[in-house]
Design a protein around this nucleic acid. Sequence first.
DNA 1: ACTTGACCTCGAGTAAGCTTTAGGATTTAT
DNA 2: ATAAATCCTAAAGCTTACTCGAGGTCAAGT
Lengths: 142, 142
Amino acid sequence: MTYAIGEIAEKMNLSIHTLRYYDKEGLLLFVQRTENGRRVFSDRDIILLSTIECLKATGMPLKDIRQYVDWCVEGAETIPQRYELVKNQKKVLEDQMAQLQKMLNAINYKCEFYKQALETGSTELCESDRKEWAEKVVTGKF
Amino acid sequence: MTYAIGEIAEKMNLSIHTLRYYDKEGLLLFVQRTENGRRVFSDRDIILLSTIECLKATGMPLKDIRQYVDWCVEGAETIPQRYELVKNQKKVLEDQMAQLQKMLNAINYKCEFYKQALETGSTELCESDRKEWAEKVVTGKF
DNA sequence: ACTTGACCTCGAGTAAGCTTTAGGATTTAT
DNA sequence: ATAAATCCTAAAGCTTACTCGAGGTCAAGT
């Protein structure tokens, strides 16, 4: 099966503009063209696009994703590099999640405070923000 | 205790430029000035700055954080709004973490593949990228 | 007193990741 | 056969969040 850019845009939930932008940035090197220059996506392209979306969702910048795509296009001899990149991104992701978990704890603390403030009817500005709370946020000790 | 902008920059691990930028964007409404215009931060300011950093870490745009700060400055009558904002951000954060967890599963799958490819010595381009993998990424079913 | 360092404003510059516009060609449906 | 939909490139524009530089004021140490 092959697909036009519009179908891919819909399937991947990206705009056509964004796909063309990705192409310009070298992320769609593997996409074929018709004799009139229209892009033709294959099922394999959808698969690689999914990988791109996955890496993007972890916050990897497009130029790094481009490196991955380049390696994919180069072939099997770049598997060690790709393995390294993916392993590294796994670590990045785990760190991100740990950081978000801390922020979630902090937000939960805030939520609790505001809830109590509403129940008891307090009047001080930001009274929830006790010093040890700020310290926990700053030092990441939550 | 009061602090100059440089001390705050160091304590919060932000550049002086960034702090001044935040001020320009209305995030530091509460910071006092000397008669000569120098910013004077209090302990309470550090606490509110910590909250700002916390919201920022969850990806909230500065203009939304500004709304929160405005409410804080307005006083206790905005506690319901602040509670709503914080509750909502908690949900955003939980969704983010769920999404990242899916991506982590996908990345783990990739890692496994590349590991095996290295051990068994495979040669196909992106052969790990089987269709059902792409589908899982696209549909978020991981 | 005077030099050094920290602060100030304002305005311009940067980078990433799109988004829009203009102008044109090609498909597809009726 | 023709109108509408879809595609193309190239270039400009936009948003967010800084980051830097120029030109100047003020405070602290020697």
